[in-house]
Design a protein around this nucleic acid. Structure first.
Length: 584
RNA sequence: GCGCCCGUAGCUCAGUAGGAUAGAGCACCAGAUUCCUAAUCUGGGGGUCGUGAGUUCGAAUCUCGCCGGGCGCACCA
């Protein structure tokens, strides 16, 4: 249970009672009513803004309302003390028993702790990665991939019905370039000396195996025909090969999609014509001439009549072209069709994860969603900023010679999937991220991956130690689970339990804001609190987890740290990071 | 020129649908620690939250102007 929403409901009920008794007006708007932990723990366990909120509509002083409410709040289950403070905060203290019961919740739920019904099973579509199928993934892609994957897992935990989608951009001119590049490698595989890769084609040697495979399958079949004949089949072959490459890379990162949608297929199925016809019917498509952009003019600017979508009618800055001069659809046109398709598949709520360099594209896409869904659909675009690779503070040099940057595979091979995933989630998505090979593998306090992993491992270490000292029969799982939690009465122990109980609230707020990084910070805090308590045991032996001559207390403390491991495990599961049992 | 994002301690960053005295880590300073459960611990200094106004009981958070940085700006994706 999320105790904050629990008490919010309770307090809302008390307000209704006061209304019914005529002490407060009827029909009060409680939409902004909050119950949250006070910033300063000395103020109590939970606090509400109810009195301040109701002061104006009730035409009473906040403190007077607080006094009315406080008298009722005192009788709520679990509440042991109520204070009115500051401008009218109602601060509540909860009994130790209440907190012990909440630790029981954590133990009972295991890693499912924090699961929420907030999403009410509503469908959400998260589209992420969607890298062009023209080569392997580089580190830049990794951030979007991990972010999208974690966001999807987070929404899933928060009770949404999530689809993880990948949009394959296999219809534009870039895949034609890919096909030509493959043809060259194919000729090479057949023994031809291809020399240097011409400008404008993909030079990466990742196409070599694809060329060989094609040569093996089709022999010299494509050497004697015109480009117009070999291009489409080679394009398809190349896209398949590249998508396999990308899927392998994603698998290394532990990233899985539940659906892949092909741009080419959308076009072939007439979805673009359909979407455009839909807009045209509403008079939102017209032939027109755009003003040249202000500021520096592109070299090849020419005034030209184009087919435009009235994006300005939906909040965009200019109307946007939907057709290229060669008569094919612009990327925007197919993307509109794609989003309409998602909407028609039942996803009124869509989230797209893009690179920050696509930021200029957000407004038009949101304008399109408004037009296409009659305002029913929503699109939240999460922009991921650059990752700068460092090693001991020095920027890592990218080798452009081979046509590749540092690949995702390189990084995963070097530091492991778990480190990549966790670090990618330690910054807000729209903030730049520094990824320092030396720092992320360091075993120290300031490496968040290590610090959190170590907390989880340390719990297991203590468990093993306890089994040695007290005997494996004494510390069996069900003994720990059935521990007398009433023995946990040190303030630092209760504080740890309280912190664990913030987890459901963290899940909901992070899911609501689409910000998985909040989990990283929370896990860091929880790990810090746990390590801190462990350290206290060094100074005062009475606070050690294992007390040789007090099995009951030991079991209670083992239950407490098992709870910590549950919550960390629950958080790491959202991140797709393996909770380790042991540090090496 | 226009749009979007960003500006919080010396550094790297948090700050939860506006909430009480703005936080953490690192760095710095001062102590403790030949102890144990596995990678030290405790305390301290340090801020006009870029800036100027506005909204209200209350603003780091919302609105507008300015300053500074990043990204983008017709027919690429």
């Amino acid at each position: 249970m999320n105790l904050f929403t629990h008490f919010r409901e309770q307090i809302a009920g008390l307000i209704d009672e006061l209304s019914a008794a005529g002490e407060l007006p009827d029909g009060l708007d409680l939409g902004r009513l909050t119950v949250e932990p006070p910033r300063d723990p000395s103020h109590g366990d939970i606090t509400t803004n109810a009195a301040m909120l109701l002061a104006k509509p009730a035409q009473k002083k906040p403190r007077d309302i607080a006094a009315l409410l406080a008298a009722k709040v005192e009788s709520l289950d679990g509440v042991t003390g109520v204070e009115i403070a500051g401008p009218g905060f109602i601060n509540m203290r909860l009994s130790d028993d209440f907190w012990h019961a909440r630790l029981r919740d954590v133990l009972d739920a295991g890693v499912a702790y924090g699961d929420s019904a907030m999403g009410q099973g509503n469908k959400v579509n998260v589209e992420y990665v969607s890298a062009n199928p023209t080569g392997p993934m580089h580190v830049g892609h990794a951030r979007g991939a991990v972010f999208g994957d974690a966001l999807a897992a987070l929404l899933d935990k928060a009770g949404y019905d999530v689809t993880r989608e990948y949009y394959i951009n296999d219809a534009g001119s870039q895949v034609d370039v890919l096909a030509r590049s493959l043809h060259l490698r194919y000729c090479e595989a057949l023994g031809e000396d291809i020399g240097a890769i011409p400008e404008g084609l993909y030079p990466g040697d990742y196409l070599v195996p694809a060329g060989q495979a094609l040569a093996q399958r089709d022999a010299d079949k494509w050497k004697t025909v015109d480009e117009a004949d070999w291009l489409p089949p080679l394009r398809e072959f190349a896209i398949d090969a590249m998508m396999n490459l990308i899927k392998e890379d994603l698998a290394l990162l532990g990233v899985k999609h539940s659906r892949f949608t092909s741009e080419k297929d959308l076009v072939a199925a007439g979805k673009v014509d359909e979407a455009l016809a839909f807009l045209k019917d509403q008079g939102l498509i017209y032939e027109g001439v755009l003003d040249p952009p202000k500021g520096k003019l592109p070299d090849d600017w020419e005034e030209r009549e184009q087919t435009l979508f009235k994006a300005t009618q939906f909040g965009d800055d200019v109307d946007r072209p939907v057709m290229k001069s060669d008569g094919s659809w612009t990327y925007f046109a197919t993307d509109m069709a794609y989003h309409l398709d998602k909407y028609r598949r039942g996803y009124a709520d869509m989230i797209d994860v893009w690179g920050a360099d696509h930021g200029g594209y957000v407004k038009r896409m949101q304008a399109a969603i408004k037009a296409l869904t009659g305002g029913e659909g929503t699109l939240d675009v999460k922009l991921c900023q650059m990752v700068s690779l460092m090693d001991n503070g020095e920027p890592v040099k990218m080798s452009k010679r081979s046509g590749t940057f540092v690949t995702l595979r390189d990084v995963v091979d070097k530091v492991g999937k778990d480190v990549v995933r966790f670090i990618m989630l330690t910054r807000k998505n729209d903030a730049g991220l520094e990824f320092d090979f030396a720092k992320v593998t360091e075993q120290s306090r300031d490496n968040p991956v290590f610090y959190v992993q170590y907390a989880h491992a340390r719990v297991n270490s203590v468990m093993r130690m306890a089994a040695e000292e007290l005997g494996p029969d004494t510390v069996k799982d069900d003994a720990v689970h059935g521990a007398n939690l009433g023995r946990l009465c040190d303030p630092s122990e209760l504080h740890l339990i309280k912190l664990m109980n913030q987890w459901p609230r963290i899940v909901e707020s992070a899911a609501d804001a689409h910000e998985p990084h909040r989990i990283a910070f929370y896990l860091g805090d929880l790990a810090g609190e746990f390590h801190g308590l462990w350290n206290k045991g060094k100074e005062s032996k009475s606070l050690r987890f294992i007390i040789a001559d007090d099995t009951e207390l030991t079991l209670a403390r083992l239950a407490m740290i098992r709870g910590v491991a549950n919550v960390i495990g629950s958080g790491l599961k959202v991140f797709g990071v393996t909770p380790v049992e042991e540090m090496r």
